[in-house]
Write a protein that binds this DNA or RNA. Structure first.
Lengths: 162, 162
DNA sequence: ATTTGACTTAAACCTGTGTTTAAGTCATAA
DNA sequence: TTATGACTTAAACACAGGTTTAAGTCAAAT
């Protein structure tokens, strides 16, 4: 048995966030004591763990509410719940893939600035006689990337010894 | 030379989103024609690519504005720009790691529901004589995970042949 | 007995990230 | 030459996801 404060501490969130989730229908299983205070049971933490996972995965609160509603309806909705999680698995996989693409681009730009810092000017990457980046710059990076064994050597700026 | 509509089409966003970014200081380099319309140069697309990457990485608009400001100040800020990207690289790496953790949990829950669907009831995972999930359920999954060669066999529900 | 601290609610407030609306400008095709 | 479509602005609106505030309840320690 835990109070809202206990749960807030355990989850690392604000008590008012928990009350907000409750109001949005995410915690229909939470009971109350004689004074009207929320009482969280041990098994409620399993629910909260799922809710927390979905929130951290970027699922909107209303959407999570739909899943919780399925959970409250017993074994008849087991398949729907499986399908819900199956869908979210796919969404999350795509999200991670997308993030990885952005990370690759960020690393190209780190290389761009590492080499610029080393040269003292960004203009080493400009097309001759212009102030614009040479369209071949990224391909040059790709080539260097393929021929390098250590990504860090390629994109990290050497730090003075500490 | 591109109009705001061209850029919107290329980036797959709304023209009003571009105007919004401009107002927030993300596009100080964009010029105007005699009629006051935005004119995007080829090199502006390089900036927009970076902005788009940072946005997709979850960086707040104001924060991106800071980077753009550095870009407008010439070679004197090269090191700061490198450090900015270095920081964002780390943030993004952590974000991906976090997402991967949520994905692992989601897969545990998929297994939980796959096995429940197969059994016809969720109660196979309850502690004997209770309505609460057995605390050892997750460990049981972990063990099965270690001994399995194909994740999909473990967590994906067999679909009828199509 | 009263004070303290954790809880309760409803309602107001705030931030980020745009979108929509209304009124107007301009180049070009019919 | 006029109608169309793409652009311009400022300001209002929307919406998610909370946080803050104000007023009150209650149990337990002083």
């Amino acid at each position: 048995m835990y109070s809202i404060g206990d749960v807030a501490d355990m989850m690392g969130i604000n008590t008012s966030a928990i009350r907000f989730y409750d109001k949005q229908g995410l915690l229909p299983f939470v009971e109350r004591d004689s004074a009207g205070r929320r009482v969280f049971k041990k098994n409620d933490l399993n629910f909260i763990e799922v809710i927390d996972c979905l929130k951290k995965s970027g699922v909107p609160v209303k959407d999570i509410g739909h899943f919780v509603q399925l959970c409250m309806q017993g074994d008849g909705t087991l398949m729907e719940r499986y399908e819900y999680l199956d869908k979210e698995e796919e969404v999350l996989e795509e999200k991670i893939e997308e993030m990885q693409k952005q990370l690759d681009f960020l690393r190209y730009k780190k290389w761009y600035y590492k080499t610029s810092v080393e040269a003292g000017t960004e203009s080493i990457h400009f097309a001759p006689g212009t102030n614009a980046v040479d369209p071949q710059t990224k391909e040059k990076f790709q080539t260097e990337l393929e021929h390098c064994t250590n990504l860090r050597d390629l994109i990290d700026l050497a730090r003075p010894d500490e």
